[in-house]
Nucleic acid binder design. Structure first.
Length: 1146
RNA sequence: GGGCUUGUAGCUCAGGUGGUUAGAGCGUUACACUGAUAAUGUAAAGGUCCGUGGUUCGAGUCCACGCAGGCCCA
């Protein structure tokens, strides 16, 4: 026996078996070794975090990665894939805090930073075992023996190196971002803290609509013209009037409609022309005043303010208009006070114009930066730029009218309020907002002031309002190289393309500087040491740090304690026990060139920098492995979820682009989400998360992977339904396994063993074999194209369709007889060889997606000649399909004519089947002939080619052709719109009607002379050309016909006595075969049959076909007896009752 | 609110550059086959192609505006 036979297969068991084989023989390692010296295909693994358990979506994401690495190996590349772990970051910290029952505030108090980080380090690798287990079980090949781990010193050192490179290029700088800040507590708040319940409280604030006076310029001319040369103001609304001294721009929405309104200021009653959003006019001006009495206003009681619209325009027309500074206490360093466009402007509140102060609003900051608008800032005593409100929440002295006043009333104690009240000389303390309102009212700069209720965030510790306030941060100056990053991105092949051009491209175009700072504990420390007056050094290696310390130790600037701490760090270094995390690096003190003590900036860096640095840091570049790095940069391929667009994809791209003017990856597949079967997001909380281990154990890795890949394109979201996996199991894997088993069963019976030589030469192969080989080669070509363009879904579907429709349902089904009949002939050998070849190639084509099953099939097919192949150094010497090289597409084996012929055979057979069906004539009943109308000689030739196949497939004696000359063909003519369209355009209806109502005579004329005089009223349509129509046959008068897609078939339903007898004989054979089987006869058993003559018709039929029957059922004799035999069996046949005795001949 | 994306049969999905009768698999129903048989084949039923406008002789396909879902950002 050369081929293993399987009664039933369990795909999970196959995976286990193959996995064991892989482990025992180090197949993964070997798959890389066998490609030693071959060109490299580089893959970067986006590191997962092992602090959570893996989910089914990880199976999806990693299958994609695996597919292309395996495919490229088959294509002869060496594909090293180093695994990695992402180990830093907030999720880990939060998890540790939850487990220890502490908050961030407790770190350094209840638990030392050292212990806390120790805890993080342990927690982060907690589920590594589960991850490794999943990796194995799903068949994902990645090197987990030597992964990169982002918390390792070597990794961090490489990051420091990169940061220093940024620093040297002037791309790493200290700036600020607008963050929630509590002046009362003196600390910034995280978004996490801001999301705590009770943070947002309903408060009553002073809201103010200010009038910004427009300057005359080319851009604003149209406003002044409409206002007849008078003053023009832009109205902007704010709930924080204290930010108005920091205003440096006004933001409008580019698509919003604005109007210029002529009216009076409600406080000063001066005539004004104001700009605001069209839909908000009614919020400020009552309908009663519309087109009111301007002339009489001065004399009236001024209760109704008249107004009229002078002009209407889009926000985009306002862009660039300049205005006068509203409260000119502090001057900006560059040109400011312009109208800019922002995407966050709404017309829900206010005026549709947003007062913009870059120091006190996150949106404001961003939009100002994008438009080159400077913030309003002053210099502090050290010369540093600071905002006009200090860290305690008070105006700086430069804001003369309100110097040192708290901007929020709530920051004052009652006693302070009283003192202030006396200073103000009023009976009630007036807040800054109120006093600014009064000032603006009197200066004709306020258009509206009122109290406004709205929710406002409060500090959870002090209960006082939060300010949005600029806080120090370190940045990478992405904006400086934006254009280059955009240009580089255009050279990357994105799959799908829209993620690259749209989501990623747009994001790059609008990118702001990358904020690196995180004020946490467990992460890569920022390697910058800084003195109080701003001297700083960026450390790029351990060596540099060591030298820095040694240098500092000699300096008197350090205290004894500082020197002791430095000494301790040096000691650790000497013993190689250093830890580059906090708190250790924080206790290193350096000395600046001018002799000042420098301490490390306390920030950690964004964990995304960690992962984005992996091309370098995974190899500890440039300190080690320079050569390896050079050979594996940039990556040929990466893949992650589309949610990584602004995460890993961006940081990889930014670091490579900015430091090395290179892309980091050439091809990228961004994958969609895995949802539950109803399209909802999976979550542990909702309990609809699918456990990947259970799924793999129950269904097997191969069907699971196959289902995920072929069901939807990877970038579409996948609605994960296990029923889909069972379908894949049945449909694809079941069919393929059956096909294999069929092969194995007969090959073993025939003692056939694959040979790589002495094959039946191609020229002598039967049509059927040549056809499936042609299909196979076409398949190889198409599958390769799909893999090459990173379309695994289409690749899988192609393989699946080939296996199910062509190989199993057509080739094997129609060739069954060749396998089970007679001795080994050339024809039979050809069948074995052809099927064997198809199966082996399929095993390879499918192996990237279904690596276990592919290998299993390959090994089942080739194990029997392995030793021989090894000895002769031939194709199948490899013990795993994953070592093989891609089956070369052989164009000479592709015969498109033959493929078309066979397709005709399939379609014609299907039509005949359907006719039989309708008329209830079973396939076992032979029919005399089928008529096929053909209009061209080439079609006739193609069908003739496969006549035999059609005849046996549908049990018909003859195929006949009807051509035009027969005269009985009824033809149908249809307009060819594609041709007619350009010619006749809107006269199409008329032309169409003409064609549809053409007579047979006219059609004949058209066919004969190639054109037809139409006698149409349309001048352009006097002649109809042959190319303008499609001619088909649809009917054969007097016959039963079926047609579909241009093919028509007519079936002769006459059942002659001879045909009837044959039908009965075949039915009889069928019953005997069933009997043999039911009674457990062996396939090779010979039998003798005695049939009781209880029907003339039956016996006649059997006598007439006796030879045929005996051959089919392997009967040595078939006797008709006049008495019912003893122990006879009774078998039902359609119209007869068989009383028959069947005995095995021993 | 913005960027990107999806919407076709009960379910999962195909439907180059517009061409009039929109396909496949699963499921359902019926039938056939019975030496691939806990398989297999054939057929039938099943569709306001998310909606509304527009361009066009003609729109599932192109355009605009919506609706619903998703991701990211604010």
């Amino acid at each position: 026996m050369h081929y293993k036979e399987y009664k039933s297969v369990n795909y999970a068991a196959i995976a286990d078996e193959i996995l064991e084989f892989w482990k025992q023989n180090k197949i993964f390692e070997q798959s890389i070794e066998v490609r030693e010296g071959s060109p490299a295909f580089t893959f970067y693994e986006g590191p997962p975090s092992a602090n959570g358990t893996p989910g089914i979506h990880h199976v999806m994401a990693r299958t994609i990665k695996d597919i292309f690495c395996r495919y490229k190996t088959l294509r002869g590349y060496q594909v090293k894939r180093k695994g990695g772990w992402d180990t830093h970051g907030l999720p880990i910290e939060l998890q540790v805090e939850k487990e220890l029952g502490i908050t961030k505030e407790d770190i350094g108090v209840k638990i030392s930073v050292e212990d806390y980080n120790k805890q993080c380090r342990e927690t982060v690798m907690r589920f590594t075992d589960q991850w490794n287990d999943l990796t194995e079980k799903m068949g994902y090949w990645v090197d987990l023996d030597d992964p990169y781990i982002t918390y390792k010193n070597e990794y961090i050192e490489s990051i420091w190196y990169l940061l220093k490179e940024f620093y040297k290029k002037g791309l790493l700088y200290k700036g600020y971002t607008i963050q929630p800040y509590s002046p009362a507590a003196g600390t910034g708040l995280s978004s996490h803290e801001l999301n705590m319940p009770g943070t947002y409280k309903e408060v009553k604030d002073t809201s103010l609509t200010a009038q910004f006076k427009v300057k005359k310029s080319e851009k604003s001319d149209f406003l002044f013209e409409a206002a007849k040369g008078d003053n023009v103001y832009i109205l902007a609304w704010t709930t924080t009037p204290w930010t108005l001294p920091a205003n440096s721009a006004l933001t409008v929405g580019k698509g919003i409609d604005y109007v210029l309104v002529h009216t009076f200021n409600p406080y000063t009653y001066l005539p004004v022309n104001v700009v605001l959003a069209k839909v908000l006019v009614n919020k400020y001006l009552s309908e009663k005043g519309h087109e009111g009495d301007f002339e009489g206003f001065e004399a009236s009681d001024k209760k109704i303010i008249p107004w009229t619209v002078l002009a209407e325009f889009k926000g985009s027309e306002l862009e660039g208009i300049e205005y006068e500074q509203l409260l000119p206490y502090v001057q900006p360093e560059a040109a400011a006070f312009r109208v800019i466009i922002g995407d966050f402007v709404t017309t829900e509140d206010g005026t549709g114009v947003v007062h913009t102060s870059p120091t006190f609003g996150a949106d404001d900051f961003r939009v100002a930066q994008q438009n080159g608008i400077p913030p309003i800032m002053i210099k502090d005593e050290t010369g540093k730029d600071v905002p006009i409100v200090d860290k305690r929440g008070r105006f700086v002295k430069e804001i003369t009218d309100f110097a040192l006043d708290y901007v929020k009333e709530q920051y004052l104690t009652d006693a302070e309020k009283e003192t202030e009240r006396q200073k103000q000389g009023r009976d009630k303390y007036l807040s800054v907002d109120e006093r600014i309102s009064i000032k603006l009212k009197t200066e004709n700069k306020a258009f509206n002031v009122q109290k406004f209720d709205h929710p406002y965030p409060h500090c959870w510790r002090t209960d006082k309002p939060v300010l949005y306030y600029p806080l120090d941060s370190w940045f990478i100056r992405t904006t400086a190289m934006k254009d280059r990053l955009v240009a580089l991105n255009k050279t990357i092949n994105w799959q799908p393309e829209s993620t690259g051009t749209g989501r990623f491209g747009n994001w790059l175009e609008n990118a702001v500087d990358w904020n690196l700072s995180r004020s946490r504990y467990w992460g890569t420390p920022l390697p910058i040491w800084r003195s109080e007056d701003g001297e700083e050094v960026c450390i790029g290696s351990l060596e540099e740090l060591k030298n820095g310390i040694l240098h500092a130790q000699k300096d008197d600037a350090l205290s004894i304690e500082q020197k002791q701490k430095n000494a301790y760090f040096l000691e650790l270094l000497a013993e190689n026990k250093e830890d580059l995390h906090r708190p250790f690096v924080d206790e290193v003190y350096l000395v600046s060139t001018s002799g000042k003590v420098m301490q490390r900036e306390s920030d950690l860096i964004d964990v995304w920098f960690d992962s984005g640095a992996m091309p370098f840091a995974q190899w500890h570049y440039p300190f080690e492995n320079k050569e390896i790095f050079d050979n594996s940069y940039p990556a040929d391929f990466i893949s992650e979820g589309v949610d990584q667009t602004r995460g890993w994809f961006f940081t990889l791209h930014a670091i490579s682009g900015m430091l090395y003017d290179s892309i980091a990856f050439k091809n990228v597949v961004s994958t969609g989400l895995v949802l539950d079967k109803n399209g909802n997001k999976m979550s542990k909380r909702l309990g609809n998360a699918v456990n990947p281990f259970e799924t793999l154990a129950q269904y097997g890795a191969d069907p699971t992977r196959w289902y995920m890949i072929t069901n939807a394109e990877p970038w579409d979201n996948l609605k994960f339904n296990v029923e889909g996996i069972t379908e894949v199991q049945r449909k694809f894997f079941g069919t393929l396994t059956n096909t294999y088993n069929f092969f194995a069963l007969y090959a073993n019976l025939d003692n056939y063993k694959m040979t790589e030589f002495d094959r039946v030469p191609y020229e002598r192969l039967p049509e059927m074999d040549r056809w499936i080989l042609s299909k196979l080669n076409t398949l190889v070509k198409e599958v390769a194209e799909q893999y090459e363009t990173y379309n695994p879904t289409k690749a899988g579907r192609l393989v699946q369709d080939f296996v199910c429709d062509q190989l199993s349902n057509w080739y094997v089904r129609l060739c069954r007889r060749r396998f089970w009949q007679g001795e080994m002939t050339e024809n039979k050998q050809a069948a074995y060889e052809t099927l064997q070849h198809c199966l082996v190639v399929v095993s390879q084509l499918m192996s990237p997606i279904a690596p276990f099953y592919g290998d299993w099939l390959y090994r089942n097919m080739t194990d029997c000649i392995r030793e021989e192949a090894k000895a002769k150094r031939t194709h199948f010497l490899h013990e795993s399909v994953h070592f093989t090289t891609w089956h070369e597409y052989d164009a000479s084996m592709v015969d498109t004519d033959l493929e078309e012929s066979m397709e005709l055979a399939q379609r014609i057979s299907s039509l005949v089947h359907s006719l039989r069906k309708i008329h209830k004539i079973k396939v076992r009943q032979p029919l005399q002939r089928v008529l096929i109308p053909v209009l061209s000689e080439s079609t006739r030739e193609k069908i003739r080619h496969v006549e035999e196949i059609i005849k046996s497939e549908v049990n018909i004696k003859a195929v006949e052709y009807l051509d035009d000359d027969s005269g009985i063909l009824k033809k149908k003519v249809k307009p060819n719109f594609k041709v007619l369209g350009p010619k006749y355009g809107k006269d199409m209806k008329e032309v169409g009607n003409f064609i549809n109502s053409m007579t047979g005579e006219q059609l004949k004329e058209l066919e004969k002379s190639g054109e037809l005089y139409t006698n149409s009223a349309l001048a352009t349509f006097s002649y109809l050309k042959l190319e303008d129509v499609e001619i088909l046959t649809e009917d054969v008068p007097g016959w039963l016909v079926a047609s579909e897609g241009g093919i028509t078939v007519a079936l002769d339903m006459t059942i002659s006595e001879e045909l009837r007898n044959e039908g009965i004989a075949r039915d009889f054979v069928n019953r005997i075969q069933n009997y043999r089987k039911d009674n457990g006869f062996e396939v090779i058993d010979k039998i003798v049959i005695s049939l009781y003559n209880n029907s003339e018709m039956l016996v006649n039929a059997i006598e007439a076909n006796k030879e045929y029957i005996c051959q089919e059922v392997q009967a040595l004799s078939l006797a008709i007896v006049q008495d019912s035999p003893q122990d006879a069996s009774q078998i039902e046949m359609d119209e007869f009752l068989l009383i028959v005795k069947v005995n095995v001949v021993k």
